[in-house]
């Protein structure tokens, strides 16, 4: 039976040249369970995106290490392509290629040498409600549509882990609803592990099974969603949930 824990972080710290304090500090051990939606909340600049990039193996930690499905990843380890391909990180901005929606969504399959998967691509496009724009060039899309294409491009690969960096920032409620619905569906139907970063507490309440709060680069609380919202341990978490200005 496979380990229910897919990520284990051990004393992770990430520093950047020219900054005295680490941009991210996760003291002790942080675990992310397979098949759950984990939401990291916190104000802008708290280090949420940096932590997500470490999970996505896009940036290595300066100290500490990460165990991803029992494979160690640290400052001196390059992740193998086969491992890297199990995780997809979506940047906050859609970052699409100047090609058609179809070609963008097909990208992950193309680079894996998977051909003739038109139905799979069409299904992913339909899931985000953009089948009428299949052959449109991405330069003609609105911000919300572009974000949905970016999500479909990640989903078509069916990764084990999906890392989403503020996927609904600056989007209207209709687009937010579509993206949250797709996230829930993929998590429930395929057991996809999803780690999402947001500064929107309401979104965390709607989606999360596990919640972490980051402040000033440090993970200060990490708990099941019910415990996090109803009986937080750290007074700063209580203040953050109440909406107090704690930063």
């Amino acid at each position: 039976m496979s380990d229910p824990i897919i990520y284990r972080l051990h004393d992770i710290a990430k520093s950047y040249r020219g900054r005295s304090a680490p941009a991210v500090l996760v003291p002790g051990v942080m675990e992310i369970r397979r098949g759950e939606i984990c939401v990291i909340v916190g104000p802008s600049g708290a280090g949420k995106s940096t932590l997500l990039r470490i999970l996505g193996m896009i940036e290595p930690p300066t100290t500490g290490w990460l165990m991803f499905d029992n494979q160690r990843y640290d400052a001196n380890t390059q992740p193998a392509l086969s491992y890297r391909r199990r995780v997809v990180y979506l940047f906050q901005r859609p970052l699409l290629l100047s090609q058609s929606v179809y070609d963008n969504v097909n990208y992950g399959l193309r680079v894996r040498g998977i051909k003739d998967e038109q139905n799979r691509v069409q299904r992913a496009i339909a899931q985000v409600g953009l089948q009428h724009l299949t052959h449109a060039n991405t330069r003609t899309l609105s911000g919300g549509e572009a974000q949905r294409v970016a999500l479909a491009r990640a989903l078509v690969i069916e990764p084990d882990i999906l890392l989403l960096d503020e996927p609904t920032a600056n989007l209207d409620p209709a687009n937010v609803e579509v993206i949250e619905r797709v996230i829930r569906e993929r998590n429930q139907q395929q057991g996809m592990t999803i780690v999402l970063v947001t500064h929107n507490l309401f979104q965390a309440r709607r989606l999360a099974q596990q919640v972490g709060l980051m402040l000033d680069g440090k993970l200060i609380e990490y708990a099941r969603a019910s415990a996090f919202f109803e009986s937080p341990v750290d007074p700063r978490t209580s203040a953050f949930i109440r909406g107090d200005m704690i930063f």
Binding site: Y89, Y107, I157
Partner: peptide, 10 residues
């Protein structure tokens, strides 16, 4: 960031 996004897509 486009290059890093493409790397993350595999």
């Amino acid at each position: 960031d486009l290059r890093r996004q493409l790397l993350s897509l595999g």
